[in-house]
Every structure is written in C-alpha cells, then in structure tokens.
Amino acid sequence: MSTIVSTFFALFKRELKTAMRTRVYYLITVGVIGLLLALTAGGGGAATGYVPTVVDLLLPLEVLVPVLAIAIGYRSVVSDLERGELAVLKTYDVPSSVYVFAIYAGRAVVLSVILGSGLLATLLLVSFSSGPDTSIFATHTGLDSPLLFARFIVLTLVFALALLAIVLLMSVAAQSTLTAIALAVGAVVLVVVAGDAAIILGLTDGWIAEADLLNALAIAPNSAYRGAVFETVIAVTAASESGYGSPITSVAGLFAWTIFSLISATLILHRRTV
C-alpha cells in the first residue's frame, strides 16, 4: 500500500517539476491573467462589483477553459508513450491506475494554478476598483460579495478539472502527439457543443421533459457549469429567482465526467501496455 502511495507521489512530483520547467506555461499564465483582467475591465463589471464581473466572465470562460484544458493536458500521457517510457515504467510495477491519477493530479495542479491566478487577479482588481459611483449618497454593496466570487472560482476549477480528465482520456487513447491533440480538440468540442445541441434538440423533439431539464443540463459539462454558476452566484442577488440549474446535480455531473474519464483512461492504458 505504501509503495502505491510513494509511487503516486514520485510520479506526481515529477509532473509538477516538469510543469515548472516548461517556460510556455509561464507565458500561458501571464496570458490568462491578462485576458481575464482585460475582460473584467472592459466589461465595466470591475467598477461595480463581483457579481457583474462573474456575469461578464462566464461566457468567455466557457470558451477559454476548454482551450486551457487542452493546452495543459493533451501531451499528458502520449509524450511518455512516444518516448517508450511507459514500457520502462512498467518494469517498476507501476499500476496503470496510479500512473493515470498521478499524471492527472499533476496537470490538475498546473491548470488550477494558471486558472486560479487569473481569477484571483480578477478578484483583486474588483476589490480595489469597485466602489460607489458617487459619494453624495450612502452606499452599500447589496448582496455582492467576494464570497460569491469565490464560489465562481471553485465552480470554474471543477469545470476545468472535468475537462482536463476528458482531455487526458483522449491523450491516452492517442498513438501520437498529433492524434492526441486532434482527439482532445474533437472531444471537447463534441462535449461542449453537442451537449447544448442535444438539450435543445431534446426539448424540441420532446424527449427531454421540462421537469428533466435541470438534470439534462447537468449532463453536459459546460451547461452544468453555467447552470451552477447562475444558481449559486448570480441568482443570489436577483429577486428570489431560482431554477437555473440544480447545483448539486451539476457538480455531481462534473465529478462523474472526471471519474469516468480517469477510469476509462486507466483501462485503456492497461490494455495498451500489456
């Protein structure tokens, strides 16, 4: 048992070290921070509060997060595979599951740091720049608070990590780096676009009933993310509105995508190197 733990951490640390020595990731981090700050300042949400900033960032993030997940994750396993290192690792009796989870954990930390830095920078920008428009009248913040933005950060990271797992699955299934990126992009697009399309189609054709809509929304990762953000962040300040999406089902759905992808990756890897 302890071998598994130490093996896991050895692989995990190696992933982290690799990431820290990859210059491109630093560039990406700067880019993400810059992009998020620009979106925040440009949308005008910064000057007025946390929740308007969430509103402004939600849609761009639905596009940005998948792109980031692909960028961070597509080389995950396939680079080791191409190098022939997987066969070598097998001689050390590294189980496929430990390998997959360790790689995932390492990449997850990287993705979380990059995305988290951007979002924290945004939080700071809002907290410093938002203020009342005039000082003539008394003001208060309403229900706007950094707590709501913190929820948004958590949900965004959960979404990102689910997508990362999907990308990792594609990476394992690929035979080469080129295939890996193609598969990753294809899978993400499918999941992101087809999910929404399927829901719309289902509503139109009738095989998704209104009552099931909340659950259906939780199935596709991006609509699960969107629905959860609306329900737990944006709708809090709106007049007693709810029903945007069931947050618990949404988060459970995202976790399901993550676990399912990782388990599938393990199985594929196991069959591959035997």
Binding site: R14, T18, R21, D80, R83, G84, E85, A87, V88
Partner: peptide, 12 residues
C-alpha cells in the same frame, strides 16, 4: 529493461 532507443523526460 533497456529499450532500443532509450529516452528520458527532458528538463531533468
């Protein structure tokens, strides 16, 4: 095992 073209993770 020594594979035919051993390769190692760069940056280490």
């Amino acid at each position: 095992y020594l594979p035919q073209q051993p390769a190692f993770r760069p940056h280490f």
